[in-house]
């Protein structure tokens, strides 16, 4: 099949397009997603292609949007809700935690909704347009969380999320939207939720990452190979709940040294979960303590100087890896 280059944003767009085309029960709604095409132009053209009945704008009401999605999902539809920024889900957390997340356990009724959450910082979004909230959602029983890093996965993960009969939070990284590109063909390979992918193999240490941090880790790994000859494994988790403990432990066994990287906050963060899981079940595989590299526990600052310090980058990862290997 002929290959072509698409961006991460195009990957998501094509995933949505595929679902809207093949699943008549799917609808996509959110603020400004229709004729305007969304705050990031990610949904541009979808309303024109599928009609106002399938792709539509809503008022600014995150709770009512999610409530509506829950109502639709329990009647056989497959709603996809776009949050303009992940940050604004906080005004409606109860709809995910309490309403969607508890429903199957309490009543046996499935709630197949997908909530798209444009996440992450790095470009001056400041405290309310940069948040990385996967930890909140991973903490919720009954909820699944995916976080692709590459365009082909972004595309396939939309299909997988819509097909899954449970509430799925689809984390998408805003800095990856236009900066991450990949050669793809038109075939959307199935992406099983809960399966990680090893992006690079080496025996000196492993970086476990997701979202934009996968790309920072790959840059750091290339740099270290160049400068020090170190060979680094990079695991792209892709799915955070459930997460792929088998692949994590296999990489731990192969390297003995683990660095978990997240652009979320440190305390009780998702990196802490991965670190704890490795220590609990793979302690005997370790040659050094599992390390975390995360954002510090501070609100996300606006100034470039501050945000650059705040957010883990390839340089920080390389330093942390060198320390870990030389431990």
């Amino acid at each position: 099949m002929p290959m072509r280059e698409i961006t991460y944003l195009q990957g998501i767009h094509e995933g949505l397009q595929h679902v809207l085309e093949h699943d008549p029960e799917s609808v996509l709604f959110g603020q400004d997603v229709g004729a305007f095409g969304g705050a990031f132009k990610l949904t541009a053209g979808l309303q024109a292609e599928f009609g106002e009945h399938r792709v539509f704008d809503t008022p600014i009401c995150e709770s009512a949007m999610l409530g509506c999605a829950i109502g639709m999902a329990t009647q056989g539809m497959h709603p996809i809700v776009e949050m303009q920024f992940a940050d604004f889900i906080t005004t409606a957390l109860h709809q995910i935690l309490n309403n969607a997340g508890t429903r199957h356990y309490r009543t046996g009724n499935a709630v197949p909704i997908v909530v798209r959450a444009p996440s992450g910082g790095g470009s001056g979004g400041g405290p309310f347009h940069s948040e990385e909230l996967e930890t909140f959602f991973c903490h919720m029983p009954g909820v699944k969380v995916v976080y692709p890093a590459f365009p082909s996965d972004a595309r396939a993960a939309i299909v997988a999320a819509v097909t899954d009969p449970n509430p799925v939070i689809y984390m998408e990284n805003k800095t990856c939207y236009r900066s991450v590109k990949e050669q793809v063909d038109d075939r959307i390979a199935p992406l099983p939720l809960g399966k990680a992918r090893v992006r690079r193999r080496g025996e000196d240490a492993v970086v476990i990452a997701y979202g934009a941090m996968v790309h920072e880790a790959l840059r750091a790994a290339a740099e270290l190979q160049e400068s020090d000859g170190y060979e680094i494994t990079v695991v792209d988790l892709r799915s955070l709940k459930p997460y792929d403990l088998d692949t994590i432990l296999a990489a731990t066994a192969a390297t003995g040294r683990v660095l978990v990287v997240s652009e979320g906050w440190k305390t009780c963060g998702f990196a802490a979960e991965i670190s704890a899981a490795i220590t609990e079940t793979g302690f005997h595989l370790l040659d050094a303590p599992v390390q975390r590299l995360t954002a510090p526990d501070v609100p996300i600052p606006f100034a470039a100087t501050l945000e650059t310090r705040y957010r883990p980058g390839a340089g920080d990862i390389a330093v942390a890896l060198r320390d870990l290997i030389e431990f």
Binding site: S63, I70, T74, N99
Partner: peptide
């Protein structure tokens, strides 16, 4: 806190006001 969808009845959650939009979404579907 119960309800049977086969009877058209949504099980409430405690969070007051949260079910109005759910029934609206159900009716839209």
């Amino acid at each position: 806190h119960h309800g049977r969808l086969e009877n058209g009845v949504y099980a409430m959650i405690s969070h007051l006001g949260a079910m109005i939009s759910v029934v609206a979404g159900g009716v839209m579907a």
